[in-house]
């Protein structure tokens, strides 16, 4: 490449964004990496080098492992439920049904309201004494199932997953909806002439051809899972009995509330590594095909 004055000048356009990204991404990543080798509370003068101690602690820390397990479970269940529901909605709307726009608005609307609103609505629905869910169960004479939904370690995580699936299925739906418009309709007709029914068509034409959409949703879903914080913080704060603890809530608790900056940074670095590794693998696998 021939370097000249204009190549240098053109960088000036990138610089302001790049400085922003450096301050809020690269500097913090370097920082958490650096202090993960120390024992430090974030403010005091005492900062002692402990080598890999924090990492050793992480892998035997029952809370961290519990959080990791919760998050893997959360990722698998929510991502696939959203994909299944979103794809079903998108396919069903490619028919001659009426009021298509109404369905579209209803399915997507939860995605644009604040997570605060979502968290508080579901908090109320699941309430043991005044919640709509228990009220409904009573109405249909299933009192036996009545339950402090978010207060029970066995149900809390799954109940919050439902809220997440409710909020994000519309997002999967929109992407599948856009993906379906790219598929040539003639394919369906010729398959039908060959005697295929709707399930055959979905399995052997629609699902394979929507691969770019599946990949996009998987990547966004994984990053979304690692980002999840607000809904947990606003409802259960990780409880009861750590049953809804996430790495993110643990970082907040350890780093900001308990001033364990170096250990919190070690957990945070794990989140960053998981995010980078998983997304890179998927992008690579996708572009190889």
């Amino acid at each position: 490449m021939n370097l000249n004055k204009s190549n240098v000048r053109d960088i000036l356009y990138i610089l302001p964004s790049f400085i922003f990204i450096t301050i809020f991404f690269f500097y913090p990543i370097g920082y958490i990496f650096g202090i993960s080798f120390f024992d430090w509370n974030g403010v005091s003068q005492n900062k002692s080098f402990v080598g890999l101690e924090n990492y050793k602690n992480f892998f035997v820390d029952p809370i961290a492992l519990k959080a990791l397990k919760n998050q893997i479970l959360w990722g698998i269940i929510t991502i696939f439920s959203q994909m299944f529901l979103g794809l079903s909605m998108a396919i069903l709307l490619r028919s001659k049904v009426r009021f298509k726009i109404v369905y579209k608005v209803i399915f997507f609307f939860p995605n644009i309201i604040s997570i605060v609103v979502v968290a508080y609505i579901f908090n109320k629905i699941y309430d043991n004494n005044f919640g709509e869910l228990n009220y409904f169960l009573e109405m249909i004479k299933l009192n036996i199932l009545s339950h402090p939904w978010l207060g029970d370690p066995d149900t809390a995580l799954y109940c919050l997953m439902v809220a997440n699936i409710w909020q994000w299925s519309g997002f999967s739906f929109l992407l599948y909806h856009a993906g379906l418009t790219q598929i040539n309709e003639d394919l369906y007709e010729s398959a039908r002439i060959d005697g295929a029914n709707i399930f055959n068509i979905v399995r052997s034409i629609v699902i394979p051809l929507l691969k770019p959409t599946h990949i996009a949703l998987l990547i966004l879903g994984i990053i979304g899972t690692l980002k999840t914080f607000d809904i947990i913080y606003l409802t259960t704060r990780g409880g009861p009995a750590r049953s809804t603890e996430f790495l993110s809530t643990y970082v907040f608790q350890a780093g900001i509330i308990e001033f364990k900056a170096s250990y919190a940074s070690t957990i945070a670095l794990m989140i960053v590594l998981i995010a980078l590794v998983l997304t890179t693998i998927q992008v690579k696998a996708y572009s190889r095909d």
């Binding site: 964004s17 990204i21 301050i23 809020f24 991404f25 970082v251 995010a275």
Partner: peptide, 23 residues
């Protein structure tokens, strides 16, 4: 530059709160 900027899309911001808090 473009690839470095894309890293910003992959890193969950919540993991970086401690250094930003201290900053």
């Amino acid at each position: 530059f473009f690839n470095l900027i894309l890293i910003g899309l992959m890193v969950p911001g919540v993991s970086l709160i401690v250094p930003i808090f201290l900053l």
